[in-house]
Structures are given as C-alpha cells and as structure tokens.
Design a protein around this nucleic acid. Structure first.
Length: 575
RNA sequence: GCGCCCGUAGCUCAGUUGGAUAGAGCAUCUGCCUUCUAAGCAGAGGGUCCCGCGUUCGAGUCGCGGCGGGCGCGCCA
C-alpha cells in the first residue's frame, strides 16, 4: 500500500478515538506544498476542531498521542495552526520503490469498485471536415477514457456522429445538381463541403432552392431509396476521413452510433413522455417543462417541433435510454463545449423524470471555446476554420525541422517517425494542459511549441533515460536489488518521493475529469528527473549507487510512459 | 431580463476537502556543452490574485454587492 494511504488508515482510527462523532472520511493525507514541512500532511484536524470549538493544536496533540507510525515516518510534527506533518523514512520510500520495481504496482491502485462508464466524445459531423473545434472533445474524451480504463473501470467509448439533420436536404440538392465525380474521388469531404456551401448560399436568396432542399429532406426522412443511398454514401465517405484522423491521433471507439441510429425510437419516446405527462404541447410543439427546478424553470426543452420533426434533445434522450438498456452503465460522460450546458441540464433532468429508477450518474464534462486573436470564435483570416488534418501536418512539419536540427545524423525515416510522435504529442499536450474550462486563444506557435512545459519535454526525459540504458548495455532493470537501493542525494530523494504521488494525481484527475492534473504532475516529475540527471551520474557511479540510480531511472521512465499513455501521447527511444 | 463561466507576473496560464512565504511556460537579462542527449540546467528581474464588504485561527479559493469580458436562453445541433 502506498505510504499516504497507510498514514490515512492509521490516522483515521486515531481521530475516531479522540472524536467518536467525526466524519473520518474527511481525514485525508496529502503531499506537503513545500518539502521543508515534510512529505505529507493532514489539514483535517483544523477543520474538525473548528465546529467543536477545540484548540486545533491540542486536538492534533491528542490524535498524535494515539498514532503509531514510527515504522514509516520520522517524528511527526504539529505545525502552524494545527497541521500534522509527516516525513517518510528513507527506508519506507525505498520499500515502496522496490515494490514498484518488482511489478506490484506503479504507484497507483485500481478502483476498489470498478464501474461501467460510457464516454461520449468527438462527435464530428458527416460531410464536414474535422476542424480545430473537434480537437478538445476528441483529445479530452480519449484521455478520460484511457484514464478510467487504467484505473480498472469498464469503459465504453461511443462516437455520436452528426449523421442526420436538415443539412442533408441541401447536400442532396447539391449532390444531384452539381456533383463533380472527379473531385469526389480526390477529396470527398472538400467536394461535399463545396456542395453544401454552394446550395446553402443559394438558399439565402432563392426560395425555390430552399424549398427543393426541404423536399429532398422530407424524401430522405420518408425513406426514399435514392436519397437514402446517397446519404449512406456521404456517411461512408466521411467515415473514411474520420478514421484517418483518429488513426493519426491514436483514438479508438468501441461504437459509432450516430444520431440516425435513434430515429426509429423518437416517435414512441415523445408519445410516452406525453402520455405520462412529462411533456406537453406548447405553441404547436411538444416540450418538457421544469417548473420545479429553479435553474430550468424558464427554459423548457423542445422534444418535437411544430412541423412534427424531432430535434437533438429528443435524440439525446433516446440515446440515453439505449445506453441504459444496452450497457447498464454506472455513468455516462459527455465531453462537449460549455455552450451546451443548458442543453445537457435539460436532457439530464428530463431523463430523470422519464427513468427515475435509473441509477446512472450523468456527467457533462465541458470545456471552453477556442477563440481567435480577436476573442471571437476561431476562424482563419479567410473565415474558414483550421482543418484538423492541416494542424497535424503543420505540427509534424515543425517537429521535423527541429529533429533535423538537433539530430542531423539520424536517418530520415527515423527523423520522420520522431517528428510524428513529437508533433502529435505537442498538439495533444497543448490541449490537455490548460484547465479544460478556460477558453483559449488559438495560436499556432503555442499549439506547436516544442520547449518548456510541453510534451516533447516529457518525451525528452524518457529518451534520455532510454539512452542511459542503451549506453550502459542494460536492457531493463526488472530485478530490484532492494538492499542496494540508496537514496542519498537530495535530487534522488526528491525524485523518489514525487514518484509516490502518481496515484493521488490519477485519482484526482479521474474524479474531476481533469487530465491537466496529470500534465502538471508529469512536468514536475520530468523536472525532478532532469535535476537528478544533471547532478547524479548514473553509469559512472559505484556499483551500488549505479544499481540504485538505474532503478530510479527505470521507475521514472515507466511512470512517465504510463502517464503520457493516459494522455494519449507516445514515447520514444531516441529523439 | 434570467442563467452559466471567467478576471492571478509584460503575454499565455496552473493553483487538488479553504492551509503555511501565490507557481510554471513564453519573453528579457546572466552563467553552463572535452563528462549518461543543451528539445536541457542554474540564477535574476517581474504580483493591489479586478474592486469593496463579509465568514474564518487562516481566503486566489467560500458568501454578498459592484466593475469588466465570454457564452447560453422553444421549433439548428
């Protein structure tokens, strides 16, 4: 068991003995903000003392009197207003490292109660190019899915693509009137986009075109065979594009059940909600009202339009019902931008009324918008969005220039491969590092930066470690020599102690759906490693020290690699 | 009008049950490659955490009121 958990396990009964009514679940042990205070601390005693009007330092002393941690820690200190500070014995740190080296754990624990979690993310639209607007959902969602999986949960990823809706009326008009088969072969999405824009523009000042689009849509919805065939082809062509992007990003889905998949369920859904009094007619449409919810009382959710058509609230409700009956999940997570907060509040609230017995947690994990330098939603100068494929190309190209500059002797194919891993990693990391709820201003230079707190910095640390093993003729270091594990230099101790906190960070990131905690942890880890690297020679050290340091290097590399893997970022042997 | 989010160093941003002297990156300046990869390291400068009041032993974090900005609010998704 990890030291901070052992401390909690011993601290909690001690607190209970002193304060029998206390909620010991709040008695947690966390890393100290500054190593001068110790390795771990608890601030819980001050919080417990307050409502009881106890002297917090006296309470700390009383708890301390009942606490036996001498095997793990140096003398426990009561500090400040009532902090309890723990400093691990070097032997306790070494023991945890040895356990990790022998494969018992990698400084984290699997969930005690595994859950089934559906993660809904990415959701691009058919017939449109994937652009930078899709990147956050895709990368954040993928990372959360990986993280939950690593922690032992059963994860189901589902790409709820936009394969249905009014845009298909216009696309069908364009396809029938103006399709360029050659262009379709060369770049299907560009051709579909061209058709859509052309018809869409025409609709604005030509009512006849608008009517034609409406007619094509009605025919499609009525099951017209030709329109269905064209529609299916557009989906297939789009899927090719999606797959190409996902392959580059290393993103995989268990299911791709688009909006159209739920069409057959929508009418019955609305009928049931009406019959049960959950929805009612309003101004010709059908809507769910939430008079009893202060947040939503003025914003009913439409589930059927006055023309009989359904909208995305209807589809999302049907989707939830399908997921409930198909996978029986404990939780469904939606990863979308923050502008859909109201929508998901409505969907969740409506679903609760429809299926009050369903035990699943519903989470809307939202993120901020990508803005242009003018502070408005991001577009290029010509008004286009930046295509995701172009962004990835540029990332790899810039990385290739740097690799070529730094490692001119490597053969080109290897430099290309390094550039791919570095470039894609940089893009992902740039997206995962900020707090997801912040808006951010898109900048090529920031997105593609290769120095400072970036993925390449972490990959570089990995590559340096691998280089040590290559130079030392070591393959890996799976046989720990516990007796020889010496943590003497301050840089060694700092690095070792930081390794112990990997699991704390993974748990926090999963609880709050915030992979940026992992980014910051890994950046600190790489920093600790680099300082160790600068100050503690490994291969030139004496036998015992060398063994000890190789072990430290190996564990660091494994945590870095695992951490980056959770972020969906690859590592390299050399760069 | 109602609701959600944001305001932290010149710029971009972190900041884990409220916790100890608020941290990074970029940019600027000074050092460090005959020693395991300098995509790096060491150091310097840089702060009214938007303002005010309140709760608390303790507030960037919680509450209230302002100011400034972004977004959303029935037939698009």
């Amino acid at each position: 068991m990890l030291p901070h958990k052992q401390l909690e396990q011993r601290l909690q009964p001690a607190v209970r003995a002193v304060l029998p009514d206390a909620d010991i679940g709040s008695v947690l042990v966390r890393p100290c903000p500054d190593p001068k205070f110790g390795d771990y601390q608890t601030t819980a005693l001050m919080a417990l003392a307050k409502p009881r009007k106890l002297n917090p330092r006296q309470l700390a002393a009383d708890v301390l009197a009942r606490l036996e941690v001498g095997d793990l820690c140096e003398k426990v200190e009561i500090a400040g207003a009532g902090f309890l500070n723990f400093r691990l014995k070097a032997a306790a740190v070494a023991k945890t490292l040895s356990a990790a080296a022998s494969g018992e754990h990698l400084f984290f624990d699997k969930a005690i109660r595994p859950r089934t979690v559906v993660v809904d993310f990415s959701s691009p639209n058919v017939a449109k190019p994937m652009h930078v607007g899709h990147i956050r959902s895709t990368i954040l969602g993928d990372s959360l899915a990986r993280l939950l999986g690593l922690l032992g949960h059963r994860v189901i990823t589902d790409n709820h693509i936009g394969d249905w809706g009014t845009q298909f009326g216009m696309l069908l008009v364009g396809w029938k009137r103006d399709l360029d088969p050659t262009a379709l072969k060369t770049d299907a999405i560009a051709e579909l986009e061209r058709l859509y824009k052309r018809v869409s523009a025409e609709c604005k000042d030509n009512p006849a075109t608008l009517e034609a689009a409406r007619q094509e849509l009605v025919k499609l919805q009525a099951g017209d065979e030709e329109n269905l065939r064209i529609w299916r082809e557009m989906i297939a062509l789009s899927q090719v594009q999606f797959d190409a992007i996902y392959a580059r990003l290393g993103v995989k889905f268990d299911h791709t059940l688009g909006e159209s998949f739920y069409n057959p369920r929508l009418k019955a859904l609305v009928d049931e909600l009406i019959a049960r009094g959950i929805a009612r007619e309003s101004e010709g449409a059908k809507a769910v009202f939430f008079e009893d919810l202060p947040q939503l009382k003025d914003t009913p959710a439409l589930i059927q339009k006055s023309d009989g058509g359904f909208n995305y609230t209807t589809t999302d409700l049907a989707t939830l019902a399908y997921r409930l009956e198909t996978w029986r999940p404990d939780e469904v997570i939606y990863v979308t931008d923050g502008r859909q907060q109201l929508h998901f509040q409505q969907v969740f609230a409506a679903f609760r009324r429809w299926h009050p017995e369903a035990p699943m947690k519903l989470a809307h994990v939202w993120f901020g918008s990508i803005l242009g330098e003018d502070g408005k939603p991001f577009k290029t100068r010509s008004g286009e969005t930046v295509k995701l494929a172009d962004l990835l190309d540029e990332a790899e190209e810039r990385a290739f220039k740097v690799v070529t500059e730094k490692s001119p002797d490597l053969p080109e194919p290897q430099r290309r491969e390094i550039a791919r891993v570095v470039g894609i990693g940089a893009v992902k990391y740039a997206d995962l590092l900020p707090n997801r709820q912040s808006d951010y201003v898109f900048s090529w230079d920031k997105m593609l930066a290769l120095s400072g707190n970036t993925a390449p910095y972490l990959q570089y640390a990995c590559a340096r470690i691998r280089s040590i093993f290559r130079k030392g003729g070591e393959t890996s270091n799976r046989e720990p020599q516990t007796a020889n594990l010496e943590l003497a230099a301050p840089e060694e101790l700092a690095l070792a102690r930081h390794l112990l906190n990997f699991g704390l960070v993974l748990d926090a990131a999963a609880d709050e759906y915030r992979p940026n905690y992992i980014c910051n942890y890994l950046y600190d880890l790489a920093g600790h490693f680099t300082r160790f690297y600068e100050n503690c020679p490994v291969l030139k050290a004496d036998a015992a020290e060398r063994t000890s340091r190789l072990l430290l290097c190996d564990l660091t590399a494994r945590v870095l690699k695992q951490g980056l893997e959770v972020l969906g970022i690859e590592t390299l042997e050399q760069m």
